[in-house]
Design a protein around this nucleic acid. Structure first.
Lengths: 340, 340
DNA sequence: ACTGGCACTCGCCGCCGCCGAGTGCCAGGA
DNA sequence: TCCTGGCACTCGGCGGCGGCGAGTGCCAGT
């Protein structure tokens, strides 16, 4: 049973009003606030149908209607236009650009910006190591048997790791190792490096072999396999707005989920396509986030995706502007990375 | 009017019971649970005095008593012995030590450990740059006019910053700069470096002068002045335990404060002495934290203090064990840094 | 196909009275 | 002087009650 246009209009009106007021919306209030051109009674009939179809529900008899997850889904898919950003928002985005001194700074500013624009919890993943390529590898001797391995990627990430050498190593040896690893790995994407590292070890002459093996182990284990996806979080205080009416009473599960990096990473598992993703309530795979919605997208220079970002909020959130903000911030961040 | 011993016993009992049950405690319940050797009536008289003196109060007439901030203060100062850690806690602390691969990892493990032990919000400051000394400075040429400056401190922190050069620079020039800055700054504490940097610039010969100036600017501005004190946070979900009875209803101000790095840094401003610090409710300088208590201390190898750490929770928290945990974790972390 | 009218439902709110935990006070006893 | 048992009192919490009103579903009429 397809819904006719007016029913869709009604649904849209319900979603908009409910998001704005956070109170169940009744037929009378609807016709007053939106010029639907019909009487409350007609709207009521439409509502009955929408309820049968599972798009809205009544918290209790004789209260107004509230959208269901399914209703929000339809709204997002069919009924909402992306709301253009306000000049103030554009200005805010541009202002955040200036003065960022390094990648850490950029990520932190971005996540705060996003939290502020959407008034929700924002999450920004650092550019993924696996999607980046090696710009430079540096070896810094700390002592005779200890090196610091510093890796700089084309996305600006800098990772460092301690390497314990099996035996002491002279300065020339370090120089030689440094040259070799840069020759072999420089410019390659991290995902492609494992075989290169392997080959590199095998063709290393005996004197340097043990050191190179130690180095290779660290490279493989810590930089590639456990590619340590970092992320930044901001705006958790926004969860406490609305006096815990949202999130069925307890912030606890949400806060817990936000602290589990593994869980957060899942959120960005599917942003590879570069398309923007909206997961509403039950659609979330993560148990603890079933009472929340997540708007996420990938970002990166040009069309490539080097990381994910998004916001988390109550299912009753302003999807059009949230989506607009997330998309805009992702684009700006991508541009910023590109011009670097 | 000094409080006699029994009154203090009564206060201690009230604090312990209230912390355990989270409910106002009455005279009858007190004599039942603690063998005070006197009748409820006597306890009531003592309570009246304690109330006059401002150590406890009644939420409303005909309810039990609840400790005031002042009551907790007296309890912490005079009435509580530090509770020894349980074997399970000791084991947890030791377990966290093994397998930490770098400073980031150590700090993150520490903060999670602390949150878990105390079941509260834990905050750990990274070793302060200003208290650390330079172990090594590395210059990595990224392009002809761009250097990456990497600084490694004796506490294991690695900071990097981009340097835009006024003109292109050859490889030998970079080597020369690298040698010079390491000679001059290596081993010195960061707080002592500004004059050294200044001097270094002045005695640099013309060809390298502009590059050195750029380098010096970055060094001074970003590494010393704005010495970027980072910190890690964990256990925010613990705030939502106790159904927001604590924190007078809203988590919002607390969460907001926790996101303001500036505010958090204030918490550790006074840990320099290395002594453990307890700030209870109103004693907090930070407005938003007036409904919370903070237990903080410094940590560092041996007796020096390189950073702060602590936990934040409701004023009705188990001070003895919280204090024990914070102290123990700080000591372990200090030892870890020392043996490194 | 829409509308006005109408009876009905039910959550919210304020009211009331009971119960009981807890208190303050007092007179008597060690 | 200090402690105790007894006693009257207070007041928050709880459950039941009734009225109000927003909102609904249905139906007959246009």
């Amino acid at each position: 049973m397809p819904l006719d246009d007016r029913k869709l209009d009604v649904l849209r009106a319900i979603v908009e009003d409910y998001v704005a007021t956070q109170e169940p919306v009744g037929s009378k209030a609807l016709v007053e606030r939106h010029h639907l051109g019909v009487s409350p009674a007609t709207v009521r009939n439409d509502m009955a149908v929408l309820e049968d179809e599972g798009y809205i529900r009544q918290p209790h008899t004789s209260a107004g209607r509230v959208p269901t997850d399914r209703g929000y889904r339809l709204f997002v898919d069919k009924l909402s236009r992306v709301k253009p950003l306000s000049p103030a928002e554009r200005r805010a985005i541009e202002r955040f650009l200036i003065g960022a001194v390094d990648l850490d700074d950029v990520v932190h500013r971005t996540v705060r910006l996003l939290a502020q624009l959407t008034r929700q919890v924002a999450i920004v993943q650092y550019p993924r190591l696996s999607r980046s390529s090696v710009r430079h590898l540096e070896l810094v001797p700390l002592s005779a048997t200890r090196l610091l391995l510093v890796m700089i990627t084309d996305t600006g990430r800098v990772e460092q790791r301690l390497v314990e050498l099996p035996g002491p190593l002279g300065a020339e040896a370090v120089t030689s190792l440094r040259r070799k690893i840069n020759e072999r790995l420089g410019g390659h994407r991290l995902v492609d490096t494992p075989p290169l590292v392997q080959a590199m070890v095998e063709e290393t002459a005996t004197p340097l072999r043990p050191a190179m093996t130690a180095l290779a182990t660290v490279l493989l284990e810590t930089l590639v396999e456990r590619s340590e996806e970092r992320m930044a979080l901001a705006g958790t205080a926004n969860l406490a707005r609305g006096g815990m009416l949202d999130f069925q009473g307890s912030l606890r599960p949400i806060l817990e989920a936000l602290e589990e990096e593994v869980i957060l990473l899942k959120l960005f598992g599917e942003v590879s396509g570069g398309t923007l993703n909206v997961r509403i309530g039950d659609e979330n795979e993560i148990e603890d986030l079933r009472s929340a919605s997540v708007v996420s997208t990938g970002y990166g220079p040009g069309t490539t995706v080097v990381g994910g970002m998004g916001v988390l909020g109550p299912t009753r959130m302003d999807y059009p502007s949230t989506i607009a903000s997330v998309r805009a911030v992702a684009r700006y961040l991508g541009d910023l990375l590109a011009q670097n």
